[in-house]
């Protein structure tokens, strides 16, 4: 393939979510929604791997990486970070009417933005993380693929080959007991697992670019989406109640009375062996 002519390049869109970094997340008991204040935000780790894969493919084949995120205005931080890894362009979808969207509404909004983007330039590939660590739903990527009618390849652990001219991609998908190799036509949507790559340590100029970059902001005046399909209104699922998992019963400390290690070992074995050793299983 002749890269220099620029005839075959790929444009890749990456959907990423800014998520709270720790599991110290609390719910607002009044609204049953996430309270995100005071918790450091990061790019969802799986999405970071999606971005890395997009950058690697772009560096190999040529083209552009455009990063999209739906979220509150503060999510520009994660998009600037994406630029600092080397993405070419970043767009934040933010609007009050988007707030409270579940996965169904979120995939609707992202799809709307991707379609708008595709009026400007073609997109060959969309990459997402396999799931977000805050919601763990793994639904938005498949939702976008369904809405666009594109092939969906989830849990991708390796991009074996991408051929912009043949309009096809070959990937490995991680399964419970191994993997499978699939070929799909382009355009396609991939969700990726962490094993797919190692995240780069970007060159300094990309970091400076990230620090200076002005993220594009799109709201619903840009997207013209159906208001009944947005936000809480457009979300069929809702949290009816929340609780904490039952605490485990208070445990037993063995050998507090200065017993020797051998005595404690014997004591522990006494406790465990009847439960554990199931003969000839």
């Amino acid at each position: 393939m002749n890269i220099m002519e620029g005839a075959f390049v790929i444009n890749i869109a990456v959907c990423l979510k800014q998520v709270p970094d720790t599991s110290e997340v609390r719910l607002d008991p009044k609204t049953n929604t996430l309270k995100r204040e005071g918790i450091p935000s990061i790019i969802n780790p799986y999405d970071a791997h999606a971005l890395e894969e997009a950058l690697t493919l772009r560096d190999q084949v040529g083209g552009q990486v455009i990063v999209l995120s739906m979220g509150p205005p503060q999510a520009v931080q994660s998009l600037k970070k994406a630029i600092s890894y080397g993405a070419d362009r970043a767009i934040l979808l933010t609007d009050r009417v988007f707030a409270g969207s579940d996965t169904l509404a979120t995939s609707y909004i992202l799809t709307g933005a991707l379609q708008k983007l595709m009026q400007e330039e073609p997109i060959d590939l969309i990459l997402c993380g396999k799931q977000a660590i805050d919601g763990d739903t793994a639904q938005v990527g498949p939702g976008i693929a369904s809405r666009l009618g594109w092939p969906l390849l989830t849990y991708v652990s390796k991009v074996e080959k991408i051929s912009p001219q043949a309009r096809e991609i070959m990937v490995h998908r991680k399964l419970e007991e191994g993997r499978e190799v699939l070929r799909a036509s382009l355009p396609a949507l991939l969700t990726v697992v962490k094993e797919i790559n190692e995240i780069r340590y970007a060159p300094l100029p990309d970091l400076i670019r990230g620090a200076t970059y002005a993220v594009e902001i799109w709201n619903n005046e840009d997207l013209h989406l159906d208001p009944t399909q947005l936000g809480l209104k457009g979300s069929p699922t809702w949290v009816s109640k929340t609780g904490t998992p039952p605490l485990r019963e208070k445990g037993e400390m063995l050998g507090k009375d200065q017993a020797s290690s051998a005595q404690i070992a014997s004591l522990l074995a006494e406790r465990l062996i009847p439960d554990i050793v199931v003969p000839n299983r």
Partner: peptide
């Protein structure tokens, strides 16, 4: 949210 909360 990291397994700290059960949501229905």
């Amino acid at each position: 949210f990291g397994g700290n909360i059960l949501a229905t």
